[in-house]
C-alpha cells in the first residue's frame, strides 16, 4: 500500500458535515470543529431511567430552570471553545503566568514589596481561594444540570478555571509567605466579619435549584463585581500605585481571564434575554436581587482595602455593572 500515492486522488465527498450540524448552519457545508464537537451532542429524548437523585426530572431536562428556550443551541460561545481550543488558550495564559512568577521570584521582587502591600495582598487574595473553590462547585453544578452542550460545555471549562485560579492564589500565598498564611486566610474566610457576607453569598448559591439562577448569581453578578473590584481596582490600581506592581504580575492571569470570560457570560445572557420578554424579566429580577446582595457582600472588603475611597469605587463598579447588563437586554 505504501506505493499508492493517495494524495493524487481528488474525490468528491458525499457530504461535508453531519446531518444535525448541517441543519444548524444552513445546509451541507464545511463546519468548524466547535460546531461538530458541540451541536446536539447531549441526549434529549428516549431516556431509560429517572435519576435516583432527582426522580422528578429526566437525566437532562429543560424543566430544571425557569428560563425557557425554543432551542437550547441558540447559545454560542464567542470564544468557540471546544476542548482543543480551550486547552490551547489556557496553555498560552499559563505560560505567561509561569514566566511572571519566575520573573517575580528571580528578581527578588517579593522582598522589595512594601510590607503594608504584602500584608494587604495576603489578606485580600488568600481568602479568595475558597471563593474560587465555590466557583468550581457552582460551575460544575451548572455543567451537570445545564441543558444542551452549547451551554453546559463552557461550564466545565469555567469550573476548572476557578480551580486553576484558586491554585494561582495559593502560589501567591506561598510566594509572599508560607503555608501558615493559607491556614490564617482560611480562618479569616470562616470567621472574620469582613468575609462573612461573601461566604454567605456563596453558601446560599450552593443550594440554589435553578441552574440559570445560579449562573446569574455567580457568573454574572459575583464575578462581575468581585473581579473588577479585586483585580482591577485594588490590585492593578491601588496596590500597584503603592509599589506592588509585582502583585499585579502575579494576578495577570485573573485579569485576562475575567476579560475573556465576561464576553461569553454577556453573550449567554444576551441570547437568553432576547428569546422572550419572560426570560428578560426573570433574568432582570434575579440580577437585581443578586446585585443588591453582592454589593453588600463586597463592601467590607472594599472598605478594608480602599478605606475612604471605597464608596466611590463601589459606586463606579455598580454603575459599570448596570450599564453592562442594560446592553444585554436586562432592565434593573
Amino acid at each position: 500500500m505504501s506505493t499508492i500515492d493517495l494524495r493524487t486522488v481528488t474525490i468528491k465527498p458525499l457530504r461535508h458535515t453531519f446531518t444535525h450540524v448541517a441543519e444548524r448552519i444552513g445546509g451541507d457545508k464545511p463546519a468548524t470543529r466547535y460546531q461538530e464537537g458541540t451541536f446536539d451532542i447531549q441526549a434529549t429524548h428516549n431516556f431509560h431511567y429517572r435519576p435516583t437523585w432527582d426522580p422528578d426530572h429526566e437525566i437532562f431536562d429543560r424543566a430544571r430552570t425557569a428560563i425557557v428556550m425554543k432551542d437550547w443551541y441558540a447559545f454560542r460561545d464567542p470564544r468557540q471553545f471546544y476542548y482543543g481550543t480551550y486547552t490551547a488558550a489556557r496553555a498560552r495564559q499559563q505560560e505567561t503566568a509561569e514566566s511572571n512568577f519566575a520573573f517575580v521570584e528571580s528578581r527578588g521582587l517579593v522582598s522589595a514589596l512594601p510590607e503594608a502591600v504584602r500584608h494587604l495582598a495576603l489578606e485580600l487574595l488568600l481568602p479568595l481561594r475558597h471563593l474560587e473553590w465555590g466557583g468550581n462547585m457552582n460551575n460544575a453544578q451548572i455543567c451537570d444540570y445545564g441543558y444542551g452542550t452549547a451551554i453546559s460545555q463552557p461550564h466545565i471549562y469555567k469550573a476548572m478555571d476557578h480551580l486553576g485560579i484558586a491554585q494561582y492564589l495559593t502560589r501567591v500565598g506561598l510566594l509572599l509567605a508560607d503555608e501558615t498564611a493559607l491556614d490564617a486566610a482560611k480562618q479569616q474566610w470562616i470567621a472574620d466579619p469582613k468575609w462573612q457576607g461573601l461566604r454567605k453569598y456563596v453558601e446560599d448559591s450552593f443550594v440554589l435549584k435553578d441552574w440559570f439562577e445560579l449562573f446569574v448569581a455567580h457568573n454574572l453578578v459575583l464575578d462581575g463585581l468581585l473581579y473588577p473590584l479585586v483585580y482591577e481596582r485594588i490590585v492593578d490600581d491601588d496596590i500597584t500605585m503603592k509599589g506592588g506592581s509585582a502583585i499585579a504580575m502575579l494576578t495577570l492571569f485573573m485579569t485576562e481571564w475575567y476579560g475573556e470570560t465576561a464576553k461569553w457570560v454577556d453573550a449567554t445572557i444576551k441570547t437568553a434575554a432576547a428569546e422572550s420578554p419572560a426570560n428578560a424579566q426573570q433574568l432582570s429580577q434575579w440580577t437585581r436581587e443578586y446585585l443588591q446582595r453582592g454589593v453588600r457582600a463586597i463592601q467590607p472588603i472594599a472598605r478594608h482595602a480602599l478605606g475612604a475611597n471605597a464608596e466611590a469605587v463601589l459606586g463606579d463598579i455598580e454603575d459599570q455593572f448596570k450599564s453592562r447588563v442594560a446592553k444585554l437586554g436586562l432592565a434593573l
Binding site: R15, T17, F18, T19, I41, Y83, G84
Partner: peptide, 26 residues
C-alpha cells in the same frame, strides 16, 4: 469531553465519504 470531541473530529472526515455516521446523536 476531550475524548468525545477528538473522536468526533477524527471521524468527521470518514463521515464525508462513507455512510452510517451522519446522524450519530440521533
Amino acid at each position: 469531553i476531550r475524548h468525545s470531541q477528538t473522536q468526533i473530529h477524527s471521524m468527521s472526515n470518514y463521515n464525508k465519504y462513507y455512510n452510517g455516521m451522519h446522524s450519530f446523536p440521533k
